[in-house]
Computed example of a mutant assay.
Amino acid sequence: MAATVRLLCGSVFRNSSRQFSTTCGVQAGEKWRKEHGLARSGTEYGPLTDLPDWSFADGRPAPPLKGQLRRKQEREVLAKRIVMLNSEMDRGIEMWKGRVEEAERMEEHKKSLLLKPKGKRLLKKTPQN
């Protein structure tokens, strides 16, 4: 029975002029949301996603949901990574500045070791541009 269904479906698809696509469709409004600085979809971030759905009648907030806790943890990990990368960049910039200063000191030191003018050349004024 399964073989006949498979043969039937296979022959229908082979003879059909219509193509079968497995790609996902374009999400409605994604382009508009991106142009206005919003998330790609309404469920990525924002008040509908981040705020609790309900609260107790006496005003106490509801306990956070699993998704809210997961998103909070992901944001904390991302923030820690940003701080770490920022500190690495600062250290790298400081090291680069130190190397540049050391190269300048070495250049000045090399210039100071060059021969100095003596006698009449020392008294002679050098033309200034």
Rank of each mutant, 00 (worst) to 15 (best):
K118G: 00
E30H: 07
M1S: 13
H109M: 12
A57W: 09
K34C: 00
M1Q: 12
E44M: 14
E35H: 01
R75D: 01
W32N: 06
C24E: 03
K124Q: 15
E76V: 10
F20N: 08
S11W: 01
K125Q: 11
H109R: 14
R105A: 13
E74G: 02
K110S: 08
L85C: 09
W32H: 09
E44L: 12
M106T: 04
V26K: 15
R81Y: 03
Q27I: 13
E35Q: 01
R75N: 02
R6D: 10
M95L: 11
D90N: 11
V100Y: 04
D90I: 12
P64I: 02
R18L: 12
S87R: 15
E74D: 12
S21W: 05
T126Q: 09
Q68E: 09
K124H: 07
D53S: 11
R91A: 11
E88W: 08
K110I: 05
S87K: 14
L69W: 00
L123S: 12
S87H: 10
K125G: 08
L85D: 12
S16Q: 05
V12Y: 04
R40Y: 05
A57K: 14
L115P: 02
P127S: 11
M95V: 07
V5D: 07
V77F: 06
G46I: 03
E108V: 06
Q73T: 08
I82G: 01
T126A: 04
R60E: 06
G92N: 13
L122K: 15
R105S: 08
E76D: 08
I82M: 08
A62F: 05
K110F: 09
Q73W: 05
G59H: 06
G25L: 08
R14P: 00
R121T: 07
E107I: 09
T23Q: 13
R75M: 05
L115V: 10
Q128E: 09
G10F: 00
R40C: 10
L38Y: 09
P61T: 01
R75V: 01
L51M: 14
N86M: 05
V77H: 10
